[in-house]
């Protein structure tokens, strides 16, 4: 068949990612980013995303660490496979490699973090006393713009069993990543991605009583970030503050991105015949 020189490209519609599906904003709004009409998330989308994240929390946090590691490694595989799409979005090759490698790094942490962050405590008495890290719950994330930044905030949150509502300022990259997640055995609702303007939606998440933590890594340090932190104080959310300098995400992340979203549970039991 002769190749038609007049064939039109089929474009991608950039929608939101909520509960494993790709809905439009309930508000019907879009905004233009690099020529694409991108869904502009509303506060009600944020609300729906929290519901999806909460619904997914029990299952995801209850699955085995081994299983979560498998899923994260699958994400790395799928991201590797979709390099071309991200390249088309002008993500540099080095960063793309680093993003894949970061998923792999965190995949390996799934069944080790509890051994590093928890353990038996030698209390002075006839008791077994064990501390175990557990996921905080639903984490609202103001994500950085870069793909590596995005991966660097989502991966440490979900590897330990948290579920997330991610406000992504760079819609095409974020939604393409959502497509990776959607094909990687990540249960629906574990990662929810809202594109749009975080100053509009973030306050709704910062004050939402069913959100347990707020990651401001992608927020500009300043009055808005402070205001969001104040909002979060209303229900005593755990807050990851915006980094002071723009150090990027190339360095070894260390444990803090994970431990900041972990609770330590300590269980006592007597030892006797």
């Amino acid at each position: 068949m002769p190749k038609s020189s007049t064939r039109l490209t089929v474009r991608k519609t950039y929608k939101l990612f909520i509960g494993g599906k790709f809905p439009r904003s309930e508000s019907g709004r879009t905004f233009v980013v690099n020529g694409d009409n991108v869904a502009l998330a509303s506060r009600k989308d944020a609300r729906d995303a929290v519901v999806a994240a909460r619904a997914a929390f029990g299952g995801w946090s209850g699955t085995t660490a081994y299983n979560r590691g498998q899923v994260l490694y699958r994400i790395a595989e799928m991201l590797q496979a979709r390099r071309a799409e991200f390249k088309a979005l002008k993500v540099p090759g080095d960063e793309l490699d680093a993003a894949v490698d970061r998923w792999v790094w965190y995949a390996g942490w799934s069944d080790k973090i509890a051994q590093v962050a928890g353990g038996a405590n030698p209390v002075a008495g006839p008791f077994l006393n064990v501390s175990t890290p557990e996921p905080t719950g639903v984490v609202a994330v103001i994500a950085p713009t870069s793909l590596l930044g995005l991966v660097s905030v989502i991966a440490p949150a979900i590897v330990t069993g948290n579920t997330t509502v991610v406000l992504a300022p760079e819609p095409q990259t974020a939604i393409t990543l959502a497509e990776v997640l959607a094909t990687s055995d990540v249960p629906g609702g574990v990662v929810n991605i809202l594109t749009g303007r975080y100053p509009e939606t973030a306050p709704w998440l910062a004050t939402h009583a069913d959100v347990n933590a707020l990651d401001l890594t992608g927020a500009e340090p300043g009055e808005l970030a402070a205001e969001l932190e104040r909002d979060a104080a209303g229900t005593l959310k755990r807050v990851i503050r915006p980094p002071a300098g723009s150090s990027g995400f190339d360095a070894d992340p260390g444990l803090r991105p994970m431990t900041a979203l972990l609770e330590t549970k300590t269980v006592w039991h007597p030892k006797g015949y």
Binding site: N121, V123, A124, N129, S131, K265, V267, W268, H269
Partner: peptide, 14 residues
């Protein structure tokens, strides 16, 4: 803190 078959136990290591 979960106390199983005990309660209100405290220890500096815990």
């Amino acid at each position: 803190v979960i106390w199983a078959n005990t309660f209100n136990k405290f220890d500096p290591a815990s």
